[in-house]
Amino acid sequence: MDSIKETTLGFYQRINNTYQNYLDKSTPHAILRWVGTYILFGLFMLRIVLTEGWYIVCYTWAIYLLNMFLQFLTPKFDPSLEQEMESSSVEEGTSKMDEDDDEFKPFIRRLPEFRFWYKATVSTITALICSFIPFCDIPVFWPILLVYFIILFTLTMRRQIQHMMKYKYIPFDVGKAKYSNK
């Protein structure tokens, strides 16, 4: 009985190591990873459009991707919370920073790119699998879900962009200073 457990555990360990090896090899190839994920996105959208069903699965998937995208755009250390902490420490007289302190703070994402890609790919594969399960095809009036998602996306992104403007951070390389080697 113990040899069967050891054999089974060894088998799962080999599968896990192989899987992790492929993930590690794919890490530097960001463009190819995202191309594969966009192909999965396209297959899932094609499946939804052609079957005219599984709108709840699609809506849930889209909300999950929106949530992850917001985490991707948000800094790991929220400037609004840091500002509150600094103002409370100034009131208590324990602040160590000057008001004119412009120390460089790199943009560190709350959700790193690789984790974002991984979660987006896994969620798309899961949604694609769910689109083949009849139990998950709950009948709904899809235009209401679409309008609600558009409103949710617009309001959420407006709030995120206002936060980015207020605390002056840019989560992408666009518009950032670039220095050349001389």
Rank of each mutant, 00 (worst) to 15 (best):
K5M: 11
T8W: 01
T8C: 03
G10Q: 04
Y12C: 13
R14D: 11
N17V: 05
T18F: 14
Y19G: 03
Y19A: 06
S26N: 13
P28H: 01
P28M: 02
A30V: 14
L32S: 15
V35D: 03
G36W: 02
T37V: 12
Y38P: 00
I39C: 11
F44P: 05
R47N: 15
V49M: 13
T51N: 14
T51M: 13
I56G: 14
C58H: 11
Y59W: 06
W61H: 14
W61E: 08
L65V: 07
L65H: 13
L65T: 09
N67W: 09
N67V: 12
N67G: 11
Q71N: 03
F72E: 08
L73D: 02
L73K: 05
Q83M: 09
S87V: 01
S88V: 10
S89N: 15
S89H: 14
V90R: 14
V90A: 13
E91G: 10
G93H: 09
G93D: 08
S95Q: 12
S95L: 11
K96Q: 07
D98E: 15
E99L: 04
E99R: 01
D101A: 05
E103H: 07
F104P: 11
F107C: 02
I108E: 03
R110C: 05
F116P: 08
V122Q: 02
S123C: 04
T124H: 04
I125H: 01
I125W: 01
I125L: 05
C130E: 00
C130P: 00
S131Q: 02
F135Y: 07
D137R: 03
I138L: 02
I138M: 03
I138W: 00
P139M: 03
I144G: 03
L146V: 10
L146K: 04
F149H: 13
I150S: 09
I151L: 10
M157D: 06
R158K: 07
R159W: 03
R159G: 13
R159K: 09
I161W: 02
K168T: 12
K168W: 01
Y169V: 09
P171V: 04
D173T: 12
K176N: 12
K178M: 11
Y179G: 05
S180G: 09
S180V: 10
S180R: 04
S180F: 04
S180M: 03
